[in-house]
């Protein structure tokens, strides 16, 4: 059963592809809310839109992520690229409410080429919203082939971001004293680039030097240079995370950061890693969709045959227990 007919879907997809902001905003909400119309749209989106290039940003609070993303987006936009920024903040587990405050930092004038959306985690684990992969793909259907994602930046988000991003920028800043913390959390291992933000502040050089020293001590770091290391001595080509000083406030270092990320992307494309990640995402999405389709069908079947009602009555009467009841229903549903 579809919530939208083919003509409505055609129209929505056309408006999306034409860059309509309103239709994109509404589509994000439909997807986020798990509405039937959102699912209808997603079927079209996945059928037509390629994976966009996804760059994740993580790092402790106050490092400057929310300042950096719009600045980077503006640099991409200046080259004529269409970009999306997705900024995730936590929902309160008790009220479900959230304050989404990442837009405060964006002082760029409105620009059609940049779409900024704040998302609440709504129970998603690892500091990301559950719907993030779908929203990312939706951005591509709207012609935005570069997606920058700001995670909540605490706890496991560093790991979860790997499931959606091709590259991860770990953002830090002088005075936050998180170099050691980062080492403990293993955060450096997942970074594509380590960005020391607030290069305008004293202490930026020291922070960058400390990070470089920490990196040089990492296992296998010997003889590697920052960035791409071509295959040699029996080792395949490898990427060694460069440490870059940037200033989100002034934009200094932004082109260098983008250049590093592009270099990394080219390396991933050459090595097949880029395609592997995309495939892993497609597989995970396929399984998730399969699970919900099978569940829907199985439950409908169990209700139509009356098995569900019979077992549920016995549960009410105290004649069975929840574990046995579930098994009884599952066993009664034929799987050809």
């Amino acid at each position: 059963m579809s919530a939208m007919d083919a003509a409505q879907l055609d129209e929505a997809m056309t408006r999306l592809a034409a860059g309509g902001t309103r239709v994109l905003s509404r589509a994000v909400s439909l997807v986020e809310n798990g509405e039937p119309r959102g699912l209808d749209l997603l079927e079209r989106v996945y059928a037509t839109a390629p994976h966009p290039w996804v760059i994740g940003f993580t790092g402790v609070g106050g490092a400057g992520k929310s300042t950096l993303l719009p600045r980077m987006a503006a640099h991409f936009a200046a080259r004529g690229e269409y970009v999306a920024i997705l900024a995730v903040d936590p929902s309160s587990p008790i009220t479900g409410g959230a304050v989404l405050g990442d837009r405060i930092r964006s002082t760029e004038a409105p620009d059609e080429r940049i779409y900024f959306r704040s998302l609440a985690t709504r129970g998603g684990t690892g500091g990301l919203a559950t719907c993030i992969a779908d929203v990312v793909r939706l951005m591509s259907a709207a012609g935005r082939r570069i997606v920058l994602v700001e995670t909540v930046g605490a706890g496991q988000s560093e790991v979860a971001i790997r499931d959606v991003a091709h590259a991860t920028v770990v953002v830090t800043a002088p005075g936050l004293g998180d170099e050691v913390q980062a080492m403990k959390a293993g955060i450096l291992e997942i970074g594509t680039v380590l960005a020391v933000n607030k290069a305008d502040l004293p202490g930026a050089d020291e922070a960058a030097n400390t990070l470089q020293h920490v990196m040089a001590l990492a296992p296998g770091a010997g003889h590697m240079t920052e960035g791409l290391n071509e295959a040699r001595d029996g080792h395949p080509a490898r990427w060694f995370p460069p440490v870059l000083k940037v200033c989100a406030r002034s934009g200094a270092g932004m082109e260098a950061l983008i250049a590093r990320l592009e270099e990394h992307r080219a390396f991933q494309e050459r090595s097949g890693e880029y395609a592997r990640r995309n495939l892993a995402r497609d597989r995970a999405r396929m399984d998730e969709r399969l699970r919900s389709l099978l569940m829907e069908r199985a439950l409908a079947r169990a209700r139509a045959t009356g098995v569900w009602q019979t077992v549920e009555r016995r549960l009410q009467a105290g004649e069975t227990d929840p574990m046995r009841a579930a098994r009884e229903i599952a066993d009664a549903i034929p799987i050809q």
Partner: peptide
Amino acid sequence: RDAGMEVVYAGLRRTPEEIARIVLE
């Protein structure tokens, strides 16, 4: 937020045009 709403706090000194774009996005 405590009432269960999702609140985008967009900060100070916004122009009407910026605000409209934010509401739209």
